[in-house]
């Protein structure tokens, strides 16, 4: 897979991990736990990408101190909406990795796309957003 595609996915994972900070504090109970699990999944993919990029001799793009949110997160409803968006956006980067990869790399990219698409569906259910699904997860609108 090209370093450019990997770096794009890594930057998306950085932003996702960052976003789950403000999301988590607005949630409680099972939803907060789900946010922590989602964040852990993004961390684990970030770590794998850093290893892959550095062993491949590529440049590892640096994490930033903060990322611009698409809208302010002020309550549970906006936190859930952002969680949906975070999963959709990261899914799009892994979808873009599919044509650029083969074999085990493609399997991993598809696993990420699928996992994030399913998580977006779960967040939509929590947020009361219908329909719960989109026809082409990860496809740019």
């Amino acid at each position: 897979m090209s370093a450019e595609v990997l770096a794009g996915a890594l930057t998306a994972e950085y932003a996702a991990i960052w976003a789950y900070g403000p999301i988590g504090v607005r949630l409680s109970g099972a939803e907060r736990k789900a946010a922590a699990e989602a964040e852990a999944a993004h961390r684990s993919r970030r770590d794998a990408l850093v290893v892959q990029l550095s062993t491949g001799g590529g440049t590892v793009p640096p994490d930033r101190a903060g990322y611009a949110l698409p809208f302010p997160v002020t309550d549970r409803a906006s936190a859930l909406r952002l969680a949906v968006e975070v999963e959709e956006r990261t899914a799009a980067f892994w979808r873009a990795a599919l044509p650029a990869s083969t074999g085990a790399e493609r399997d991993r990219a598809l696993a990420a796309l699928t996992e994030y698409a399913v998580r977006a569906t779960r967040w939509r259910r929590s947020a009361g957003i219908t329909p719960l699904t989109v026809p082409f997860p990860g496809r740019p609108a």
């Binding site: 979808r95 599919l98 044509p99 493609r106 598809l110 699904t133 989109v134 026809p135 082409f136 990860g138």
Partner: peptide, 11 residues
């Protein structure tokens, strides 16, 4: 075809 099939699988 990989991206389309990936979206179908994920959907």
């Amino acid at each position: 075809r990989a991206a389309l099939l990936g979206s179908v699988a994920a959907a």
